[in-house]
Simulated assay, not measured.
Amino acid sequence: MQWTSIIAIFVLFWVMCAFVLLPFGVKTHDEMGVDKIPGQADSAPANFRPLRLVIIASVCAVLVTTLYVLNYDNGWVTVDDVNFFNPPEMP
């Protein structure tokens, strides 16, 4: 696999991990007991930490990309293994 493909796959996994991790650990102003600014949405986060999100998403994306590349090179799980619509007949 070319290194440019690995970078592209890493970016895709990073974005996916970041969006999956966004709602975890975030609390609203009402949940934290902090006063809201007039006109602020009720669902606005009070403790959003983007650096923490970037670090956790990066670690997650590195792990998932590593597994993907190793599977691509070693062929642990192939298309034939996940073919549920036309499975091969057992003898």
Rank of each mutant, 00 (worst) to 15 (best):
R49E: 09
M1L: 04
F10C: 00
V82Q: 02
N83M: 15
V82P: 06
L22K: 11
A18P: 00
F19N: 02
I9K: 06
L22D: 08
T78G: 11
A18H: 02
T66R: 01
A44V: 03
P87I: 00
N74G: 09
Y72T: 02
V20H: 01
K36S: 09
T28Y: 04
V11R: 01
Y68T: 13
W3S: 02
A46K: 03
P87F: 06
L12V: 14
L70S: 10
M16H: 10
V82G: 03
L12C: 14
W76V: 06
F85M: 11
D42C: 00
V62K: 00
V82Y: 07
R49C: 11
W76R: 05
F48I: 08
I56E: 11
D81W: 11
L53M: 06
L21W: 12
F13C: 09
E31L: 04
A44P: 00
K36Y: 00
F85I: 09
R49H: 12
K27L: 10
G39Q: 07
D30H: 12
W14N: 09
V69C: 07
V62G: 07
V62F: 09
I56N: 05
V64R: 00
Y68F: 14
V54S: 01
G75I: 04
V20T: 12
P45G: 12
F24Q: 11
C60M: 14
T4F: 07
N71E: 13
P23N: 05
F13H: 10
T28I: 12
F13I: 13
D35V: 03
T4K: 11
I55N: 04
V79D: 13
L53S: 04
V34M: 14
G25I: 05
I56L: 13
I55W: 01
F85K: 11
D30E: 14
N83R: 15
I37P: 05
N83H: 05
L63V: 15
P23E: 09
N83V: 06
L22S: 07
V26M: 13
N71I: 15
V54D: 00
W14M: 00
T4G: 04
F84K: 02
L70K: 03
V15S: 10
F13E: 09
I37W: 15
P87Y: 04
M1R: 02
I55R: 02
V62D: 01
Q2M: 00
S58I: 02
P38L: 07
Q2S: 13
A8S: 11
L70F: 14
T65C: 07
I7A: 12
V64D: 03
D80N: 10
L67T: 03
W3C: 01
